[in-house]
């Protein structure tokens, strides 16, 4: 019995000659395909609720991104409205700065209703 493969990832998949990863794409595909942009998909599950991030996908343009999003993310009536935005237009806060970035809010306990102790007589406030 050959047991030289000792590393396993998902279930029974061995790590023998598996992909190294982290290299830039080398592909024989046409430039068009390689350049299909990535889109972030946001879905409103019900009228009256916010759109919520559902995932991402590649598509040639916004119209096709919306159609693809319908096919993958709303197969079971999960949505009544879809937004797509090209991933490159999303700007995000830096997780490394999170501590100092959100720090100003942490010492303002008086912003919460629980900060105030009121007499019993004042009900339902």
């Amino acid at each position: 019995m050959q047991q030289f493969i000792r590393k396993f990832y998902y279930g029974d998949i061995p790590d023998d000659i598996s992909g190294e990863g982290l290299k830039p794409a080398q592909t024989g595909e046409s430039a068009e395909e390689a350049s299909w942009p990535l889109w972030e998909v946001f879905i409103r599950s019900k009228q009256g609720l916010d759109h919520k991030h559902a995932g991402s996908l590649h598509a040639a343009d916004a119209q096709m991104a919306i159609e693809n999003a319908r096919d993958v993310y709303t197969r079971r009536n999960e949505g009544v409205s879809i937004w797509v935005v090209e991933s490159k237009y999303i700007h995000a806060s830096n997780p490394d700065d999170a501590e100092s970035f959100y720090e100003p809010a942490s010492d303002k306990v008086y912003r919460h209703p629980t900060f105030y102790e009121l007499p019993e007589a004042v009900r339902n406030m």
């Binding site: 794409a25 080398q26 395909e33």
Partner: peptide
């Protein structure tokens, strides 16, 4: 994405 898929097609990456 292309690289991931190429790895499958070249036999470099495995599946169950």
């Amino acid at each position: 994405r292309e690289e991931t898929i190429n790895d499958l097609h070249s036999g470099k990456a495995k599946y169950s």
